[in-house]
Design a protein around this nucleic acid. Structure first.
Length: 139
DNA sequence: GCCAACGTTGGC
DNA sequence: GCCAACGTTGGC
């Protein structure tokens, strides 16, 4: 199983909005970046992702699960763009901020820290474990 | 609100 | 196929 990170601006679509969608989840549409799309193409049902709030908060707030693999993005006619479906799993006991991630030596290689503009990112098993530790989650 | 980083576009 | 111009993202 792989781990990912999804960025969203909370004033557009935040964690609470995903929670409101319930088990049916939501399309992660609107991605218009090849790297991010390729990440989504690699995702499998059951993979987990961090839900990160950009601009406002700048922190990982929750865990979501991939519930449908990449399919055409319904918000565009352009066949290049695809998206996965995700649903909220649980909120982190405590959010983990970008500041904390930058201050944590074990996260020095994390994409979040090094490529601020990529909206869908891979997270390694080790990075995931560190984030869980920082958030106070059991794992 | 500014600006750096980065990706995309389009002229040559 | 190169590269300058432009647009967007996102941290500050």
């Amino acid at each position: 199983m792989a781990y990912w990170l999804f960025k969203s601006e909370p004033d557009v679509f935040g964690w609470d909005d995903l929670v409101a969608k319930g088990d049916a989840g939501e399309e992660w549409d609107g991605v218009r970046n090849y790297q991010a799309r390729n990440m989504m193409r690699s995702m499998k049902v059951g993979d987990l992702g961090l839900f990160y709030h950009s601009n406002i908060g700048k922190e990982a707030v929750g865990i979501c699960e991939i519930i449908a693999e990449a399919h055409p993005d319904s918000t565009t006619e352009d066949a290049r763009w695809e998206c996965v479906d995700v649903r909220a799993v649980r909120k982190l006991p405590r959010p983990v901020s970008l500041e904390e991630a930058k201050a944590e030596p074990r996260l020095a290689q994390m994409v979040l820290v090094n490529n601020t503009r990529l909206s869908v990112q891979p997270v390694t098993d080790q990075e995931w474990a560190v984030i869980m530790e920082l958030s106070g989650a059991e794992g």
